[in-house]
């Protein structure tokens, strides 16, 4: 860990390097002058209150939103150059799950980028997709209609679609929102497994209580970056208060005292 941190000033050695990024909708800035460095091999949480610009940040990094200023480097190169190295899990409710198709087919979509225009997925792709479904323990649902899946199962399918991309760096938008406890545990185990393979994972996360248990890197965002670094350094009452402002006063007594005293970092 310490080794990686020392090298962070050098751009190609950073999994994600964002410089002075400003994004605005209709002349109103949503992200102000973001400087972000995430070293490779970490499981990073992007945390902040509603409307802090968390999803916007990810979408801008992936080129889905055009920034007003600044630039983004993934392993030292632009997103376009690194596209094949990047996997993306959008918010689950951003799609219509009544679409007529099976889980296996959704996962196969993860390979469309590699196939490029016009080429069709074949046996090999189906096999890869099946393997990804096995990783999220959904192989028995491979031929199930996606409309019949529970929220947690849908999220696993989305995760499998990212796994099949065999990327180096994963961006996920609230993968644990509205899923059951079993799925949440399954997802976090997969994320940790990926990290142990040296992949970088950048996760928009909404639940402050689990940050310390799940993640080893943390970015506190509220329109600008308030703090970033290893969770143990960033997860302080002071930083959280800065990010959540007045909302934090409500959370403060309930959570932080318990969290900072009680958690044992068993999983890190």
């Amino acid at each position: 860990m310490a080794d990686k941190l020392n090298k962070q000033t050098h751009e190609p050695d950073l999994a994600l390097h964002v410089e002075d990024l400003t994004v605005s909708y209709a002349s109103k800035p949503v992200l102000w002058d973001i400087d972000l460095n995430i070293p490779p091999g970490v499981l990073a949480a992007i945390v902040g209150p509603n409307g802090a610009g968390k999803s916007t940040l990810i979408k801008t990094v992936l080129g889905l939103i055009k920034p007003t200023a600044g630039h983004v480097y993934i392993h030292g190169k632009s997103y376009k150059q690194q596209m094949s190295q990047v996997a993306y899990v959008p918010q689950r409710n951003s799609v219509d799950w009544d679409f007529p198709t099976t889980s296996l087919d959704i996962v196969t979509m993860g390979l469309y980028g590699k196939l490029g225009w016009l080429k069709r997925p074949g046996k090999k792709e189906k096999k890869q997709a099946m393997h990804a479904l096995e990783q999220v323990a959904m192989e028995s649902f491979a031929h199930r209609q996606i409309s019949q899946l529970s929220g947690g199962q849908q999220q696993r399918v989305f995760l499998a679609r990212a796994l099949v991309q065999e990327a180096n760096i994963y961006f996920m938008d609230e993968p644990m929102a509205g899923v059951d406890a079993t799925t949440e545990r399954a997802i976090i185990n997969i994320l940790k497994e990926l990290r142990s393979q040296g992949k970088t994972l950048i996760i928009v996360h909404h639940d402050l209580q689990t940050v310390q248990n799940y993640f080893d890197w943390m970015v506190l965002l509220n329109v600008r970056i308030l703090a970033q670094g290893p969770v143990k350094d960033v997860y302080t009452a002071e930083n959280l208060a800065a990010a959540y402002g007045n909302q934090f006063a409500l959370l403060n007594n309930m959570q932080i005292s318990k969290e900072t005293n009680g958690s044992n970092h068993e999983n890190l």
Partner: peptide, 22 residues
């Protein structure tokens, strides 16, 4: 039929399709 896979992915998940470079 020529743009089958492309139409399908754009119809299901526009943002994801864009992230793949379509």
């Amino acid at each position: 039929s020529v743009f089958w896979k492309e139409f399908k992915i754009v119809t299901f998940d526009r943002g994801f399709a864009a992230s793949l470079g379509f």
